[in-house]
Every structure is written in C-alpha cells, then in structure tokens.
Write a protein that binds this DNA or RNA. Structure first.
Lengths: 229, 229
DNA sequence: AAATAATTTAATCAAATGATTAAATTATAA
DNA sequence: TTATAATTTAATCATTTGATTAAATTATTT
C-alpha cells in the first residue's frame, strides 16, 4: 500500500500505517482470512505439523499470498501465538485488577469466565502450554507485560495473608489449584470423557457445574487452619 | 536374524523370536539406542517437530539403521507412544486394583507415586495429552486394554457411593480434580514458576508438599454434604 | 578357515515444503 | 481514461526430510 519494490509490495497490518483506512469487514480481507485459517490450524496442530499449503487452502487463497502478507510461516505463527496468548491471559488480568472485588469474588469471576472461554476455545490451552514449553523466555516477557504489576502485587498480598494466618494455603498452591481445577479438564478432555463415559453434552454440563463447584472447593482450601485444639 | 531378503534384513524386537537370545546390556544394543534417542526427542518435541536425522545423531548411529530396525519414523513413533502411554497409566491401574486399600489410601498412593513419576518424567504428560488429542481413538483402545475392568468397576462403585450420599462429589469431578491437582502443575510448570517466582528447587519442594496436601484437599471434597440443617 | 548371515555405512532418491519470481489482474490515483 | 500501485496467480526453486540401495564390514555358523 505504500512501498513498491522489485519484490512484491508489502502492507501487513503490523505496519504503523493503515489504521482505519479501510473499514473492510475484517472477515473478508485476504490478510484476515489467512490469519484465521492459520489460527485454526496452528492452534489445532501446532507449528511443525501445520503446512503453509493447508493454511492457504483453508483460507481459500493462493499460497504466495501467505508470504506476501506475512513474509514467512514463522512470522505468521509468531503473530498468532502472541494473539492467542494475550487472549488467554487477558481474562485473568482483567478480573484480578478489579479492586472492588474480594478474593473470593475474583475467583468466582475468573473461574466462570474461564470456563466459558475454554468451552469456546477448547484447543487453546494445549497450544499455549506446548508453546510455552518450546518458548519459555519469549512468552515470559509477554506475561510480564500483560499482567506484571497485578500479578506481583496480588501475589505479595496473598503471601502476607498466608503468613499472617488469614488464608490456610500457600499462594503457589492456590494458583496451581485454581488453574489445575479450571483448565485441566479441557486439556485432558479425551481421557476424561473416556474414563467417565461422558458424551459431549454431559462433558459441557460437568464444566458448567464446575463454575459453582470450583469456587466452593477453593474457598475450603483458603480457610485458615483450625484454632489448633 | 531370520529373514534374508534383497532388502536389508529385519529383526526388530517386535517380532516373536529372540526372546532372550542375547541378554545384551539393553543400553548398548543399536535398537535400544535408537529407541531411547527417539523417546527423548519425540517426548520432548512431538512427532512432527522431530527429525529422523536428529534421532540418529542423538543415538550416535547411521540414519539408515533407523529404517533398518523400525521400518519408518511412524512405526518407531507408534512404539514409543505406546510404551510411554502404558507407563503413564500403569501407576493408576496398579494402585487402584489393590483391593486391600480404602479409597482414601488409594488416592494417597496414587498421588504420591504420580508426583515422583512426573518429577522424573516431566515431559511425558504434555506428550500424552497432545497425542491423545491427535489420536483419540487409537489410545482409547489402549486405555481399555490396560485398565478397562478396574476403571469400570471402580467408577460404578463411586457412582453408587455418591448416589447413596456416602461421598459428596460426583465421580467425574473427583477424577478431574485428582488429576488436575496432580498433573497440571507439571504441565504448566513454566507459567507457574514465572507467576510464583519459584526456582527449580522450590518448584520441586512444592510438588513434594502436594503429596500430602492433595489427599487432604480431595478428602474434604469427598465428605458428604452436611446433614442439612 | 570358509561360507553365510547380519549389521553398518555412504551415497542417493523422491516427495514434501517453505519461499520466490515474473507475469496477469484488479484497484486506485491522476 | 490513463497511469500507477497493489494484489493475485501459476510456475518454479532450493532445502529439507523420510526412505532406499548397494557395497563394506562384522558376526555367526559350518
């Protein structure tokens, strides 16, 4: 849209220009079609198992357009990964930053929101966890940028509360349990369904129940130790 | 060892012969070296991201030997996957089949054993979960073969106990929670360490603590609802 | 020791795959 | 409308990658 070289012009959305030049329905733009196809396949199959040709087919565009708009498979993947990741941690930062809520209320909100989010995006957590293992440093930086202060502050508060005996669980365990109880069933969905014999509807019902149940379980864990008889 | 064709001879351990013909130190045999290298790389990086050349290098053998002993990358992978998977569910079946233990005792044993196992094999759960998503049917069969009756029976007992009001949690949730609490921290280790600021030693300490803590939390969940004021 | 079988090696193949190019088409600007 | 820029297409490249082959080496059997 601006440059003009011997090589194909290049006008990716990551450039600074073209803010709202074209309010084209996002869906219909070629760049967006490629991104959505890439998101679907990368999230489902991971980087290595995804073929650029499959992305092109899924998007219904010519293979060369992928490189025209995104330079390389890797660059496209990086964009998708960042967007996925941001989405994944947004809910946490969002609810935990709300100072008007008590810890219990924050937990209720986060759990409920997350279960809805995971129901709508079932492949995301495994993608995130895998990429986080392959790429711990890059994403670590992203975590900090997104929820840095909130996290540090909240965690410090929890530690104080625990040290003072107001909550009966080490903050590290609290975090592990909160996300273990919330996220794990979605990651382990195939095994769980096999083991429990639940079909898709039943599985979703179970997840809906957990919106209520997880906060109850967590609250029990939060209770300070009994006055030591 | 038996056949002799225009193509290279083929004497894999999956054949019926060679039961103990050579009590060679397992480590030193070429076949075993390939398998161990393959296990390491496949488990770490997954099928698509692993190159047969990398396996050969890791094993310190000629690339052609991989095909000589295992025919193809896929066949080698299938073997590794099955072995990993078997190892992964063995502990469960083992402890849950012990009729002399109470449910609480079984839980204690399984949790403790699993945390040790996951500490020693930190890449296994993510591998299993990924492969299970890519290959749900094949592995579903394997689950049944390994822990079929035990699972069915135990799960039925739990359902009865829950219906009768002896345990205050739906069995499906119990299973989800037990493994969520136990396995998830290992799968999400990079994020958890980042969020909690724990180094490797501290992380391992936390996991050791969970051997005691998880059974306590689970027992609380098991408690029947109060006599309804 | 000689013959046979099994294993290992180096070289090579064919297909898959990410990427590029030049030409054609479409949209935008003058 | 014409000229210019942006987009799209079909063809092609260069590497990578899984797999194979024939020859060399090593082990086993007779």
């Amino acid at each position: 849209m601006i440059k003009s070289k011997p090589r194909p012009t290049f006008a990716p959305s990551t450039q600074i220009d073209m803010p709202k030049a074209k309010p084209i329905a996002k869906e219909s733009s070629t760049e967006e079609k490629i991104k959505e196809a890439a998101r679907k396949l990368f999230t489902q199959k991971g980087f290595a198992a995804t073929r650029t040709r499959d992305i092109a087919d899924e998007a219904g565009i010519n293979l060369a357009l992928l490189n025209y708009y995104f330079r390389s498979k890797q660059k496209l993947f990086d964009i998708i990964m960042m967007e996925n990741f941001r989405q994944f941690i947004h809910g946490i930062s969002f609810n935990f930053q709300d100072k008007t809520l008590s810890l219990e209320q924050k937990i209720e909100k986060v759990v409920s929101m997350y279960i809805d989010f995971l129901t709508a995006n079932p492949d995301l957590p495994l993608f995130i966890l895998t990429e986080l293992r392959n790429n711990p440093d890059q994403l670590a930086a992203s975590i900090e940028g997104e929820i840095g202060e909130t996290r540090t502050e909240l965690f410090a508060q929890l530690k104080v509360a625990h040290a003072a005996g107001y909550i009966g669980i080490e903050p590290s365990h609290l975090v592990a349990n909160l996300f273990g109880l919330t996220v794990f069933p979605f990651v382990a969905r195939p095994i769980l369904q096999k083991v429990t014999g639940a079909d898709d509807t039943q599985f979703n019902n179970l997840m809906q129940q957990r919106k209520e149940l997880i906060p109850i379980w967590i609250k029990t864990m939060l209770q300070p130790p009994k006055p030591t008889k």
